[in-house]
Design a protein around this nucleic acid. Structure first.
Length: 477
RNA sequence: GCGCCCUUAGCUCAAUCGGUAGAGCAGGACACUCUUAAUGUCAAGGUUGCAGGUUCGAUUCCUGCAGGGCGUACCA
């Protein structure tokens, strides 16, 4: 039978219901209980609503399972009880329909809590068949393109998004308690800054100007530090016009937080206590499994410089030994242009070799200045900046640094950066940002946390698409 | 972008050393007033992702395309 035949069949029932004077798309239905609230025998009548997910007919009686957001309940429809042609109407109900039912709670012979339906209303007729009841919806493409079906068919899916919501809520609470102010900064920016990704371009008609979707909110949040707001954060969607894979979606959710008078050491403490407290709230514990790996989040977390990590996992001693590093890079099939300095090759080797070994939380510190144009250099070492990235379960979860607040140094870094910029990206220095710095920005620490990846970690999800309700896919022709 | 793999009924899956596809669920009909992956009987459901090629014959082999998955590159 073609799908259209299944739909024809249901449309037929719809018409028949209307003929019987039943409107199959109902209105407000006032419930006395949500399903999970019906735990024992409840005297009198209850009214619940939900979607029919299973039907088991027995001649002039039937059992049905109805589901709301809190759980599932068995319903018992019986000709003798409904009476007067009402059972005939019930026979036009399909799996997938939304019903409001009224009845009394009892236990079946097998002890299952069930509602003996005395009256019911069809709240919405479903015209399409639901995915298979036992195996759920497995087709990965369908799950993403029609997430509503995934939510109906696969129990663990709503749970992931409940946890995601919980995590963001608790993150807010944590930061508020620490005195951070939540702000909103422009998504459409004249000059996209704060990261080096390719931006999406859009256009404002009335202003007759091109605008860019932000790749990060960083430069606007730091303007607020100039303005005297000492602790700010934004839970933001940012947009990067780059490849899509298990760790990257073109639009993604990030926390960025800035704290005046602090440095990256302060941010490490904040990050550690934030993530530990989130794990306790969401999972109720500090240990978790991520993709076959056992992870222990218990403080204190390990801290290691980038250089030390390379020594430990790739056993090479000296960043000035370019020959040796190139050899290692080559053995890892890394493509190099030949113009890289020691730190850049080191970073590439790190990504390829070290990262996968960082299962328990590790702060990797002290990145090369050349790849960190907005970070403050370490006292006594102009090549290195005060920056860390946090790795858990082999995933890069956070990135933070002591913020560069010297406007002339910042200009120099921007100019350096401009030289290597890719052709598709607008070549411009954010003069307005530099001007802001000239008014004086307090020394500060800044933090970025990839919320999608953190949710992946806490829900044991192998792909970022599992934790984004509507991940980006190619349009289907 | 590159490499490898996948695409069979609405859903979940079989099958074919190249001989025109078969189950379960869902849907239809009948029976059944305590079932719970209800049960029993019957009937129906397919341009095997799309377009070409080879062949007497292609769902199967080959090429191209589309979508998807994984890896890799870009994403400081």
């Amino acid at each position: 039978m073609e799908e259209s035949d299944l739909i024809v069949e249901r449309k037929k029932k719809l018409a028949e219901l209307r003929k019987l004077g039943i409107e199959p798309y109902g209105r407000r239905f006032i419930r006395t209980h949500k399903i999970a609230e019906i735990k024992g025998d409840i005297p009198g009548k209850v009214k619940i609503a939900g979607r029919i997910v299973a039907l088991r007919g027995h001649g002039k009686a039937a059992f049905a399972d109805i589901k709301d957001i809190t759980g599932k309940m068995q319903l018992y429809f019986k000709n003798d009880i409904l009476g007067d042609g009402r059972y005939e109407i019930f026979e036009k109900v399909d799996i997938g329909d939304f019903l409001g039912v009224e009845g009394s709670v009892f236990r079946t012979r097998t002890g299952e809590l069930t509602i003996r339906v005395e009256d019911f209303k069809i709240l919405a007729k479903s015209l399409r068949p639901l995915p298979e009841k036992w195996h759920g919806l497995k087709d990965v493409e369908l799950r993403y393109r029609k997430r509503y079906l995934d939510l109906i068919a696969n129990e663990e899916v709503p749970e992931i998004f409940r946890k995601r919501s919980q995590l963001i809520k608790k993150m807010r609470e944590f930061l508020e308690k620490k005195g951070f102010l939540e702000v909103e900064t422009p998504i459409m920016q004249e000059i996209p800054g704060g990261a080096k990704a390719r931006p999406f371009i859009t256009r404002h008609q009335a202003l007759d100007t091109e605008l860019y979707l932000r790749i990060a909110p960083e430069l606007y949040l730091k303007r607020l530090l100039v303005g005297g707001l000492e602790k700010v954060y934004e839970i933001n969607k940012s947009f990067r016009n780059e490849g899509i894979d298990t760790l990257h979606n073109p639009e993604f959710t990030m926390l960025e937080a800035y704290s005046a008078y602090g440095d990256y050491q302060e941010m490490m403490e904040l990050t550690e206590s934030l993530i530990v407290s989130l794990a306790k709230e969401i999972l109720g514990k500090e240990e978790l499994n991520y993709q076959e790996q056992k992870i222990n989040l218990k403080s204190p977390w390990q801290r290691m410089s980038l250089k030390e990590s390379l020594k430990k996992y790739c056993s090479f001693e000296d960043f000035s030994d370019l020959k040796k590093m190139r050899k290692i890079a080559k053995s890892l099939n890394l493509e190099l242009t030949g113009a890289e300095n020691g730190f850049e090759i080191g970073d590439a080797i790190f990504k390829k070799k070290v990262q996968a070994s960082l299962i328990n939380p590790v702060f990797i510190l002290d990145y090369p200045l050349s790849t960190s144009p907005l970070a403050k250099s370490k006292p006594g070492n102009a090549e290195i900046v005060e920056r860390f990235e946090l790795f858990i379960g082999g995933l890069e979860i956070a990135n933070a640094y002591s913020e560069l607040n010297d406007p002339r140094e910042q200009r120099k870094r921007f100019e350096e950066e401009l030289k290597e910029e890719r052709e598709s990206v607008k070549k411009a220095i954010d003069e307005d940002y530099l001007e802001a710095l000239e008014y004086g920005m307090p020394p500060a620490a800044g933090l970025g946390i990839g919320i999608d990846r953190l949710v992946m970690l806490l829900t044991n999800s192998p792909s970022i698409r599992n934790v984004i309700l509507f991940p980006q896919l190619k349009p289907k022709q």
